[in-house]
């Protein structure tokens, strides 16, 4: 049955449609491109980081460093463009090189030292946050003409909604991520490693290069996310984006990717982001609910998805056993 592969994804899609329908029933205004535009803009940085996280989780790993990397990016750009006077484009390029190398180093440690990704990226999390503090402990505003241009850049959707530049960046990253995951050799290798590292190696998957590539990609996308976040907030602050890695993991899991690796879709993560964004939007519309309700609902959703995944695994095993028994 091919259906079981798509079931988590379809479940998320159904939840999103149902939740959106309920929201519209209560607040008809939520059915507008304005709401949609804001949803994309507000969650752009999280979505971009979650694409990287999807690859990491598909390979059976985890990356706890991305929140810190996002904070580091903001501070680096603010201090670099302000205090050090580096031209904005050069600062961005330099930043992306630094964070990609940082991710590649973590990937290399995970592979060559055979260390759990959890520990290595936990170290990376402290290290990147520490580097951000080293650059500046204050919230540093960013005043660059490039930023003003990018902030005012948007595409007007029918109905008056604004698809902002950073929203478009997120959509582009998702499309790029889907192509990378499903249509390239690198993507196949990520799934293969998530399925079974030993088998993948015997079948000729370059495990070292792929592992390094996965964490480099995750950090690179965290870098893009950091840039987007700095455009969104016009500032760099070393205490920003605390816990974003956990939100990203939540989006990936709600999107139907299995935490043990090897199964899931980048498109699912997009749905996960939409579901999480929708909950926030609902709370804004309601106006009386505390924003902590977002966390509570996301927590409940995560619980139900873990149960769903466990159930699927259980169901598949039982079917396999039944098939074996029928043969015997």
């Amino acid at each position: 049955m091919i259906g079981s592969r798509y079931l988590p994804l379809l479940t998320t899609l159904a939840i999103f449609i149902l939740a959106y329908a309920l929201c519209i029933a209560q607040f008809p205004n939520m059915l507008s491109t304005r709401v949609l535009g804001n949803l994309l803009t507000d969650n752009a940085f999280l979505g971009i980081a979650a694409v990287g996280m999807t690859f990491v989780i598909l390979s059976g790993g985890i990356d706890l460093s991305i929140g810190s990397v996002i904070a580091f990016c903001g501070v680096f750009l603010a201090v670099g463009m302000g205090e050090w006077g580096i031209p904005p484009v050069l600062a961005i390029v330099l930043l992306l090189v630094i964070v990609t190398a940082f991710g590649a180093t973590m990937g290399a440690m995970i592979h060559y030292l055979a260390m759990p990704a959890f520990i290595v990226t936990l170290a990376g999390m402290f290290f990147a946050r520490g580097m951000a503090f080293l650059l500046s402990t204050a919230s540093v505003p960013i005043n660059a003409p490039l930023y003003d241009t990018l902030q005012s850049l948007y595409f007007r959707m029918p109905g008056g909604g604004r698809l902002t530049f950073i929203g478009m960046v997120m959509l582009a990253v998702f499309i790029g991520g889907m192509i990378l995951a499903h249509r390239t050799r690198f993507g196949r290798n990520v799934y293969a490693i998530g399925g079974n590292v030993q088998s993948a190696e015997l079948m000729g998957v370059p495990v070292a290069a792929t592992t390094i590539g996965i964490y480099a990609l995750s950090s690179f996308l965290a870098g893009i996310s950091g840039i987007v976040f700095s455009i969104y907030t016009s500032a760099g602050y070393s205490l920003a984006a605390v816990g974003v890695e956990l939100d990203a993991i939540a989006a990936v899991v709600i999107g139907g990717t299995i935490l043990t690796g090897g199964s899931g879709f980048v498109a699912g993560t997009f749905l996960g982001i939409l579901v999480m964004g929708l909950i926030q939007t609902y709370i804004v519309f309601d106006g009386t609910l505390s924003s902590w309700w977002t966390k509570i609902v996301i927590g409940l959703l995560l619980f139900s998805f873990i149960v769903l995944q466990r159930g699927l695994v259980w169901f598949t095993e039982r079917r396999a056993n039944a098939a074996a028994a029928a043969h015997a």
Partner: peptide, 16 residues
């Protein structure tokens, strides 16, 4: 030593 989480075709052509 194949990968059950990939399709049959992907298993045949993984790496090439």
């Amino acid at each position: 030593n194949l990968l059950p989480n990939l399709t049959v075709a992907e298993n045949l052509f993984l790496g090439r």
